[in-house]
Measured scan of single mutants.
Amino acid sequence: MEVRTIKVFTTVDNINLHTQVVDMSMTYGQQFGPTYLDGADVTKIKPHNSHEGKTFYVLPNDDTLRVEAFEYYHTTDPSFLGRYMSALNHTKKWKYPQVNGLTSIKWADNNCYLATALLTLQQIELKFNPPALQDAYYRARAGEAANFCALILAYCNKTVGELGDVRETMSYLFQHANLDSCKRVLNVVCKTCGQQQTTLKGVEAVMYMGTLSYEQFKKGVQIPCTCGKQATKYLVQQESPFVMMSAPPAQYELKHGTFTCASEYTGNYQCGHYKHITSKETLYCIDGALLTKSSEYKGPITDVFYKENSYTTTIK
């Protein structure tokens, strides 16, 4: 009895394709271990004539594949690729409408935090270190965002349907971005203890939790000093293409032309909904596939993004 075979390709990165001759009487799992086709788990399936010449994702289970996976995804987590594939199996079914010149995501599976993050990423200057993220990001900007969303979920250790947080998501993504040249110098002034300067680099240099107003941050924000008295913390120097200011959701007025974009969060910790506000020729609110415009805006804002380049204080 002759062994019926077909020729397929296996890959971990969709760049390096490895030619395989597979036995049609055995499952993919018996031949390769966990195997995925377009995100779908085909591990328990036997090869079919229609699979001839198709590319299958496999887990990096030998040295060659491990090197290829690390170079593309910059992670050695053995569960990463499987999590990416199972997320992709959902995100490829989502709709990605162009809204006001940006790629958004039609609401499904509690994905409003991903839509808000995706919209924000198209408006701030950011370059990702893992080629996987950078490639998928370019495709997302062009309207094909399924891979990018699935990668975000995998890097953030999230599953489809789980509630997510924009600030946490951005923080994970910033860790995989090139923020080497970003720098922030802060000064804390206390009447009792004097003053202390701190220099922050990388992710810490672009994120701040405690106030939404970048102007206020430049002037000074009140913080408790270690001595128990009130101290003032203010920005001395900022070198970065953008800054992200966050605070627990509270009524906040966004003035046209003073910011790049913002995240609105309605609801409580267990259950809520994100919308995205962007400042173009007027203010726009993007909620999944829905767009509304207004000249002014007041609502429960939790993150505001500002364009920056270089700032030095005039406070002496």
Rank of each mutant, 00 (worst) to 15 (best):
H18L: 07
V8A: 09
Q222I: 10
R66Y: 10
K93F: 10
L37T: 10
K158C: 02
N110T: 02
T75K: 11
T91I: 05
F56G: 02
T292I: 10
L235S: 01
C225M: 01
P130I: 06
Y72H: 13
T120C: 13
W107F: 03
Y306T: 01
Q31C: 11
Q195W: 08
R141I: 10
Q175N: 14
L235Y: 01
L114I: 09
L153I: 07
D287E: 03
S213R: 04
S104F: 04
P97T: 13
G164R: 02
T302W: 00
L81K: 06
A177D: 00
S263E: 01
A154D: 04
F80E: 05
K158I: 03
K316A: 15
A262W: 01
K127M: 09
A145E: 04
Q122Y: 01
G101L: 04
L186E: 15
S86C: 15
L235W: 03
Q20M: 10
V21C: 14
F259W: 01
N187I: 11
Y28N: 03
T159A: 14
L126P: 09
D180Q: 11
L88F: 09
Q216W: 03
G33R: 04
P60V: 07
F56A: 06
D63R: 08
A205Y: 01
V188G: 03
A40C: 11
E162W: 05
A108Q: 09
Q175F: 02
P249E: 01
I45H: 11
Q222F: 10
E144H: 11
L102K: 04
R184H: 03
R141A: 13
A108C: 14
R167D: 01
S294Q: 14
L59D: 15
T278P: 00
K127C: 09
A40W: 12
D13I: 05
Y155P: 01
Y234E: 02
F305N: 00
T226R: 15
P47F: 04
V185E: 06
Y284H: 10
T76I: 14
K54M: 13
G143Y: 02
W94E: 05
V99M: 15
T35S: 12
R167N: 04
F32Y: 09
S279N: 09
S310K: 01
Y274S: 01
L283R: 00
Q197F: 09
P130T: 09
L59F: 15
K293H: 09
S295D: 15
G220Y: 00
A146W: 08
L235N: 01
S171V: 12
E204Q: 14
D63W: 06
Y72P: 05
Q195D: 15
M170D: 01
A108T: 08
